[in-house]
Amino acid sequence: MTAWLIRLGRNTLDGVEALGQAGIFLAQSVIGWPSREGLRLWLRQMHFVGVMSLAIVLVSGLFIGMVLALQGYTILVDFGAADALGQMVALSLLRELAPVVAALLFAGRAGSALTAEIGLMKATEQLSSMEMIGVDPLRRVVAPRLWAGFVSLPLLTIGFSVVGIWGGQLVGVDWLGVFEGSYWGNMQASVNFIDDVGNGLVKSLVFALVVTWIAVYQGYALIPTSEGISRATTRTVVYSSLAVLGLDFILTAVMFGNFA
């Protein structure tokens, strides 16, 4: 019994300590004024994390929009409400699907790569040699990646929504024959810029922070062996997916949960 309690206490303390370390790590990397060199590094990471993720995010957005329109149409047409298709596609994309799916794709596409890259740097002792020559690896390696993630994911989410709504139009209007005016008109009547687009963006900002933070910290704190790298990469994808889905529920409850 005592042994069990001791183990519980040790695990709790370990957990709190890890969380605290990750928090200090985040604060130390993010706070500070970027140098010219830092901007250049950030730009390189933006290319890798943002621009290179564009293809998978946009293609997924297109197909999800198309599927939403197809599924929504078959349900709505039973109620004679096929005109509400635009509203359904736009609201589900803006509020829910674009932030979440883009964040999940981002964790798989960019997050795992960030972990593996930083992990390999650590395993080949590039990070400690940087410290040796007086370069702070947090500012040189970690900060540009964190900032690139924070900026990219909201932009990718916007792209996801836009392409998804267009995909919904392709299927709903051009194929299934919903009247184009009611597709866009009902959408404009029901979508509120602050409540729907704005809250979706807030969600994606939170997800960007969490996913990039987990990815970079897992890479920075891993055990520098080949097994450690593979474990950390897996942990990045698993932890960030769970964090995104869990946080999404909380954020949705806070943003859209008041049915007054």
Partner: peptide, 27 residues
């Protein structure tokens, strides 16, 4: 080329937001 790509990416994001504002939410 990389800088151009990032620039286009940022621009596309802003344009997307404008689209969401004007066309989708009817601002």
């Amino acid at each position: 080329w990389m800088e151009l790509g990032v620039g286009l990416f940022m621009l596309a994001g802003v344009l997307g937001l404008v689209f969401l504002g004007l066309r989708v939410s009817g601002l």
